[in-house]
């Protein structure tokens, strides 16, 4: 089993509903967020193009944050989800430095926090909060090793990219282009 997410950049309108849903679901402290919207504008006026991306932790297969963690607080659980055990984290910041996606932050309580793919919801057979709330249905989630999962079907007939593949992290967020 390997959880992954596909984000349809053609459907995303950048409403930030996923951001708010995550903050509410996971009690993210004020001023912080585990997922966020990137607007990438390219071209020269008047011919410009915009790409909207809902980004979060990539739950990398080759996660540098897990490798560099000195205490083992950052670890990978079933389904390839990268998690942080709060009472093992010393708050040294090594994982924050190691992440090419800047997906981690230092929680005001001291430990490092990040997207968990809503593991507590997955255990109950639910989707992640951001996927459920998306008004344009541009987020697809599921087991990428299952050919009939939502994410696998979304990737099937579309071209996609991952972010910074040259970093060698094997990220698990796929952006449909």
């Amino acid at each position: 089993m390997r959880y992954a997410m596909a984000i349809d950049t053609k459907k995303c309108v950048g409403c930030s509903d996923c951001v708010v849903a995550c903050q509410t679901e996971n009690n993210v402290p004020h001023g912080y967020c585990r997922d966020w919207i990137v607007e990438n504008v390219s071209g020269a006026y008047p011919i410009v193009e915009i790409e909207l991306r809902s980004e979060r932790c990539n739950h990398c297969e080759n996660a540098p944050c897990v490798r560099c963690c000195p205490t083992g607080a950052s670890h990978t659980v079933e389904g390839g989800i990268v998690m942080v055990t709060h009472d093992e984290c010393i708050g040294c910041g090594a994982c924050i430095q190691s992440c090419p996606y800047d997906a981690r932050y230092s929680h005001p309580d001291g430990y490092v926090d990040k997207c968990t793919f809503c593991q507590h919801r997955l255990e109950k057979g639910q989707n992640t909060a951001c996927v459920d709330v998306c008004p344009t249905k541009c987020l697809h989630f599921g087991d990428i090793e299952d050919p009939y999962s939502d994410v696998s079907l979304a990737l099937k007939n579309r071209s996609w990219k991952v972010l910074a593949p040259e970093a060698g992290t094997k990220p698990q967020l796929y952006f449909l282009t």
């Binding site: 950048g14 930030s16 951001v19 001023g31 912080y32 967020c33 966020w36 919207i37 990137v38 607007e39 990438n40 504008v41 390219s42 071209g43 020269a44 910041g93 924050i96 430095q97 800047d102 932050y105 230092s106």
Partner: peptide, 23 residues
């Protein structure tokens, strides 16, 4: 070709706009 990047909805202390977690 000019490319611009905007990150909206995120202003996390010590992470945005530049990472500055180690002082």
């Amino acid at each position: 070709m000019k490319e611009e990047l905007f990150i909206s909805g995120r202003d996390i202390p010590n992470i945005d706009p530049f990472l500055n977690i180690w002082h």
